[in-house]
């Protein structure tokens, strides 16, 4: 059980990283969502083995009860990533409306600085000696 869960965590995370490295925004977002799922699943894995509902005294001795804390943490993390990813989707949509393009754009100012730098280099090498 634990081994397969760990395997799924690993697979989800690596698929997420692969998608994150693409240039298309929708893939990046999918990648982040998968990595989020992987992290939440990891929280469940570290909680130890499954057990009964964690209400003290209600369902038998304490050692047959699941660890409630990772579940609470995972729940919080899920809600948070749900909110952030939906905001990200809204932004991606906005970006698509503005540019009609799903790709991540380059930074204009950065490109300009790089050009300036290259020009400077060329001047330096072709200076009269």
């Amino acid at each position: 059980m634990s081994f397969f869960s760990a395997l799924i965590v690993a697979v989800l995370f690596s698929v997420g990283v692969y998608l994150l490295l693409q240039r298309t925004l929708s893939r990046i977002i999918l990648g982040l969502a998968l990595m989020g799922h992987s992290a939440n699943l990891l929280l469940m894995v570290v909680g130890g083995r499954a057990g009964k509902a964690p209400i003290v005294g209600a369902f038998g001795p304490e050692d047959t009860v699941a660890d409630p804390l990772p579940q609470a943490l995972a729940l919080t993390a899920i809600v948070i990533s749900f909110g952030v990813i939906s905001f990200l989707l809204a932004i991606a949509y906005r970006s698509w409306v503005l540019t009609q393009n799903d790709e991540v754009e380059d930074d204009v100012e950065d490109a300009r600085i790089a050009q300036l730098g290259e020009a400077e280099m060329r001047r330096w090498w072709s200076r009269p000696r």
């Binding site: 994150l20 982040l32 929280l43 943490l73 952030v84 991606a92 991540v104």
Partner: peptide, 29 residues
């Protein structure tokens, strides 16, 4: 447009960091 482009970078990198943070917390736990 400029804000959306750079905001996207900001959000993605921070979301990645947050995911790693959850992983870190899981390990610590």
């Amino acid at each position: 447009r400029e804000q959306i482009r750079s905001g996207m970078t900001y959000i993605i990198i921070n979301l990645l960091a947050s995911t790693l943070f959850v992983v870190g917390i899981a390990w610590v736990y």
